[in-house]
Amino acid sequence: MIWDLDLLILLLVVSCALAAITVKDLLSATVIFGVYSFLMCLLWAEMGAVDVAFTEATVGAGVSTVLFIAAILHTSRRSKD
């Protein structure tokens, strides 16, 4: 484990999380959330949790995002906050 790489990714993750909940466009928020998940999965892989990382890559960054997008396409893209 390389702690400074960890820290760097963690900071990125935090900024992604902040962005995901502040962006007004829901589609962008969802995509940013996908990026967040992917960074998270990198972090976990780097901590030795390969299975969790694999799952998060397929679920968090993959299926979740797709489901979010599918739902947003059927509802509305805009968000007031």
Binding site: D51, F54, T55, T58, V59, G62, V63, V66
Partner: peptide
């Protein structure tokens, strides 16, 4: 190797999702 029923299932499912997309 990493993986198992859950991850594999998601990948299988993703193939159909990809078709649908």
């Amino acid at each position: 190797s990493p993986g198992g029923g859950f991850q594999g299932g998601v990948i299988l499912g993703a193939s159909f999702v990809l078709l649908a997309l």
